[in-house]
Design a protein around this nucleic acid. Structure first.
Lengths: 119, 119
DNA sequence: CAGTATCCCGTCCGATACTG
DNA sequence: CAGTATCGGACGGGATACTG
């Protein structure tokens, strides 16, 4: 985005280029939909890496099943990296890939919106 | 956000202030979750106002039921404004409130992420 | 035109128990 | 510790028909 473009102008450019059905925005929104995806990603923003149990503690209402399957989905999308250490007891670490870290500005804007517009 | 803060620093500040369960971020993510909410909001960014049928055409896979109920939800949250003209045939216009327009930078960052990271 | 009203289905998701 | 396996239920969401 050129420095002299307002968000409006930038969006205008994006929107005008794309047919509505498969445009990047729709696909992006699709990627991030699902009950837990954004919550997990936000959590992963906070620290360099997380172990399974840490994530579970940070998101107390998620179940094992959902945490596992959502992490797998995000891994497959190239947003989350999973590193398995062959130790006993098992040891796995989750972190954001570069693609995942690129979401940081998104969360930043969401945070700002929340601060200014909630309640 | 002060001009000299990086997104990382800003997020760091947000995150450190808040207990994890009811923090603004979580509540914001909650607000925007649901299969159609972000799609409708993105659509509403494109033009000053939409009629019901226009939105339906722009989102061909949504059903009447879902469009109505999601719009009602967003109206209740103060994000969408509904204006009803008492004419025959009926005429209703939907637009973003100021709170809704404040989401523009979020969509902007999402668009950028999509451009750089899809495929 | 801008919706309701109904009925109904599939998948998402949770709870619980178990394991390498 | 970091998960699977299994089952079941709710509810998000679809299709269709109808209306002020």
């Amino acid at each position: 985005m050129k420095k002299d473009m307002t968000p409006e102008e930038y969006l205008q450019r994006i929107m005008s280029k794309e047919p509505s059905e498969t445009c990047p925005m729709r696909r992006t929104l699709e990627l991030l939909s699902g009950k837990w995806r954004t919550h997990i990603l936000y959590e992963l923003c906070k620290k360099d890496s997380y172990r399974f149990g840490e994530l579970k503690k940070a998101l107390p209402r998620i179940t094992n099943t959902m945490l596992t399957s959502t992490l797998r989905d995000l891994e497959e999308l190239g947003i989350v990296h999973r590193e398995q250490f062959n130790e006993i007891p098992p040891h796995v670490e989750y972190s954001l890939t570069d693609k995942g870290k690129a979401l940081l500005p998104v969360f930043c804007e969401l945070a700002k919106w929340g601060e200014n517009n909630l309640d």
